[in-house]
Design a protein around this nucleic acid. Sequence first.
DNA 1: CAAATATTTAGAATTAGTCTAAATCTATAA
DNA 2: TTATAGATTTAGACTAATTCTAAATATTTG
Lengths: 135, 135
Amino acid sequence: MAQLKENKTEDKLTRQRDAVLQVIRSREDHPTANEIFQAAREHLPTISHATVYNSLRFLREAGLVHEIKFGDGASRYDRETDRHDHAICNECGKLVDFDLPQAADLIQAAARKSKFQAASVHLTLRGICPDCRKA
Amino acid sequence: MAQLKENKTEDKLTRQRDAVLQVIRSREDHPTANEIFQAAREHLPTISHATVYNSLRFLREAGLVHEIKFGDGASRYDRETDRHDHAICNECGKLVDFDLPQAADLIQAAARKSKFQAASVHLTLRGICPDCRKA
DNA sequence: CAAATATTTAGAATTAGTCTAAATCTATAA
DNA sequence: TTATAGATTTAGACTAATTCTAAATATTTG
């Protein structure tokens, strides 16, 4: 699963990869691969499905985008790569970023309890978003 | 999404549902729907794919099992239904339960930051599990 | 330029999960 | 007990997300 990068061209930001990155950077929300594919096609009409997935893997491994996987279907992609937490609406599925530094502080305690060597921690709140609460 | 149970037979633990529940209860780990299907067939050879999914939904809504959805493929099912946290190994994908009560305590702060009405919080640690650390 | 390597493409394949319609089961009321 | 209505199960079709494959294209380097 872990791979070293040794080739010269392996770290290139090609036209397709850049188009994918620009789509993600231009959006406040967390688009799915398919939404990114649709948007990228407006600039690069021949870009393929597989290339979007390949580009997303490349950008994720390069640390340029953040992948969010909560079941509920497709992975979503986030331009925010700093550590942060997520809230998910149980009604409409909306996904919102926020940062709770106290969650980050629990990393040592979590490592101790789980016996894992910690890489990152991340808190998920489930509840009702402001819009759904109104409705 | 929320549904009230009003019919007489709707809350019955049928033979198929019970077989699925027993599979989950008999395991320390977190099987996928497909693993549960394979195991349930040993006791109930005619049970179908769809019935396993229907049973899992039923058991989840009844609070008898806990569904865990981290991308990486299929939902996993957990006999532990009390609030708890998860650690996921970045190497081998192993999923381990633990409880960090301090994470539960952050629910109010998380609700305040996200503006959501909170239902639950849950912390996810990513890192390297003890087995992979050895290897 | 030519060879080697990397990337992209289109479409097939895979996997998880849902849907459908027919068959079966269960509870109940005449 | 029998008829029937409602619930459940079944097999298989279907959908959606993602990965794989093999051929075509592009890029780098000697």
